[in-house]
C-alpha cells in the first residue's frame, strides 16, 4: 500500500513537472507571437504543433492519474525534439538553410531574442522538449 502510494506520488511529481514545462512553453510561445508580435517561422510551427497538445495531454493524465501517458505523449515529444534539434542545427549553420522549408517568409535563422548570447527561442524550445523527454523516460518504469 505504502509502496504504491510513494510510486503514485513520484508519478504525480514527474507528470506535474512535465505539464508545467509544456504549459510554460505553450504560453511563452503564444506570448512571443501574439503579444510581442514576432511572426513564427515554419520550424517554430512544427514544434508548436507538438508542444501545444502536450499541455492538454499531461493535464488530463494528471487528473486521471494515468500511467499510460508515456505511450501517447512520447511520439509527440520525439517529433518535437527532432524539429527542435534540426532548428538549432539550422541556426548554428551546421545544416544549410537552403535545404530547409524556411527560405520564404520568416527566416528560421533570424534572432528575435538573444539572452546572454545563447538563449534564443529555438534554444528554449529544445530545452523544453529535452526536459519533457527526460521526464517521460523516468515516467516509463513507473508505468509498467
Amino acid at each position: 500500500m505504502n509502496q504504491t502510494q510513494t510510486c503514485s506520488n513520484t508519478l504525480f511529481t514527474l507528470l506535474f513537472f512535465a505539464w508545467i514545462v509544456s504549459m510554460v512553453a505553450t504560453l511563452g510561445s503564444l506570448f512571443f507571437s501574439e503579444i510581442m508580435m514576432f511572426p513564427p517561422c515554419v520550424m517554430c510551427w512544427y514544434q508548436r504543433i507538438c508542444m501545444y497538445p502536450l499541455s492538454v495531454i499531461f493535464l488530463v493524465a494528471l487528473f486521471s492519474n494515468d500511467t499510460h501517458v508515456f505511450k501517447y505523449a512520447m511520439p509527440l515529444v520525439l517529433i518535437g525534439l527532432f524539429f527542435a534539434i534540426y532548428h538549432n542545427l539550422l541556426y548554428f549553420g551546421i545544416v544549410p538553410e537552403t535545404l530547409a522549408p524556411c527560405s520564404q517568409g520568416v527566416s528560421c535563422t533570424s534572432d528575435y531574442i538573444n539572452w546572454f548570447g545563447f538563449v534564443t527561442i529555438q534554444f528554449l524550445s529544445l530545452v523544453a522538449f529535452a526536459l519533457i523527454f527526460i521526464t517521460l523516460i523516468f515516467i516509463k518504469p513507473k508505468a509498467s
Binding site: 506535474f16 505539464w19 508545467i20 504549459m23 510554460v24 504560453l27 503564444l30 506570448f31 501574439e34 503579444i35 493535464l59 494528471l62 487528473f63
Partner: peptide, 16 residues
Amino acid sequence: IIASLFVLVLLFVGGS
C-alpha cells in the same frame, strides 16, 4: 493543479 493553471494564466495575462 488548478492553482498552478491559475497562476500560469495570470502570469500570461498580467505579462501581456
